[in-house]
Design a protein around this nucleic acid. Sequence first.
DNA 1: GAGTGGTCTAGACCACGTT
DNA 2: ACGTGGTCTAGACCACTCC
Lengths: 247, 247
Amino acid sequence: MPAARHVPQRLAAAPATRPLPQGWEEIRAEVLARIHARHWLPGALIPTEEALAQEFGCARATVSRALRELAESGVLERRRKAGTRVALHPARRATVAIPVTRLEVEGRGQTYGFHLLEQGLMVAPVPVTAQLGLAPATPLLHLRTLHLADGRPFLYEDRWLNPAVLPAPLPDFTAISANEWLVGHVPYTTGDIAFSAANATVDEAAILGLRTGTALFITDRTTWTWDAPVTAVRLAYAPGYRLHTLV
Amino acid sequence: MPAARHVPQRLAAAPATRPLPQGWEEIRAEVLARIHARHWLPGALIPTEEALAQEFGCARATVSRALRELAESGVLERRRKAGTRVALHPARRATVAIPVTRLEVEGRGQTYGFHLLEQGLMVAPVPVTAQLGLAPATPLLHLRTLHLADGRPFLYEDRWLNPAVLPAPLPDFTAISANEWLVGHVPYTTGDIAFSAANATVDEAAILGLRTGTALFITDRTTWTWDAPVTAVRLAYAPGYRLHTLV
DNA sequence: GAGTGGTCTAGACCACGTT
DNA sequence: ACGTGGTCTAGACCACTCC
């Protein structure tokens, strides 16, 4: 909880108000409450940081922190000079965690395992090189891995690695999954992730032990380190997988 | 860009270093660069805020902002007294935007439309009431809506609304979609979202104009206002839909 | 030009968790 | 107990953008 020292009293006190919000978290809650109470309507301008700071008897920076968080979660829209508005079309933002597969499995209390199905340097299909922004004929390291939970197929991973940007001694990918080695050895800075659904192909069904056509949850990820592409990977999850938002 | 005034010069200047990072964004980039250069290894302690502030010649609050952002995105792990470490198992966090369906369609340059397929007050299935934390026999408002893009099926929405918490004059849901009315009239404070894949049922296939068994991208959302449940909704997207992360 | 948010500073107190 | 991050303050300058 925030400190309550040095609290300047409002001179123009509203009669019998509830206690002032303390700290940026309570201010954020208070603003949300006013929006929810339809005291501040969608699209409406809310008071300036300075006005709110005066009302709450705190520094402007504290109000700023609260409003910034709300703007980052899509509740408010802020522009200099124009002020702060309640979002009219709240494209709410949600955060998802993308853990290493081993931890994802172990987090469910299951035993993790994996099989490297294929490994080889080869020319990638054009969609892959295009996605990575590489010349069409660039040879890439292709790894296909089946991840297991309690010995049962959990996730089929089809990965292309750019050998040009990998640190020198490549590991034995039958001993450590590419997934896990990468996060420890190529901390990435940017990436793009897309989620979708697809019917299992004949190959995917065979690998995952499913009937052809089973609906699979798909994650496509492209990873970059500064400006060099590192890896493009497609993850196909066995049925039952659900990706949850945080909090 | 941040201000560069009042920059205290480092007394113990390292010889011929590159210019100091200016502002919290550049500091964040510098920290990321050191991690990426494997100067700071996964699991390792990095200097304290105070030490970095001294090194960069800025206030501690500026370093704090940069490190906080990195912690929020999963790159660093911070604990009081224990200090700040490079995340050993970086469960990277990604943010997705959840817009109103109409805007999602219009954002693709397509024309939006919808049909209300069913509307009625009825006892919800047990999984739904359980998900909302309501008594099993609670009557809920059930809405089934088909959203269209350029006249073609885009999204099938199966929604349960808690009438007890809705503002008094309910709209004509054939004129405004529940999706859109809710965001304008019941700003929510919390919610849980899960993404998954499922084969289209016979009904879903008929509604969306697909073959039974087609893989659908599913979003399940539960929404609360403070502590009262508002709505539980299942969205089934027509094939081709991809959910992208921001940035 | 002027108003608003965005950032920075220097200092301070506090909460938490390791020791 | 003590070190580290978390937060707050009061003031300042700046960037952006609307008028």
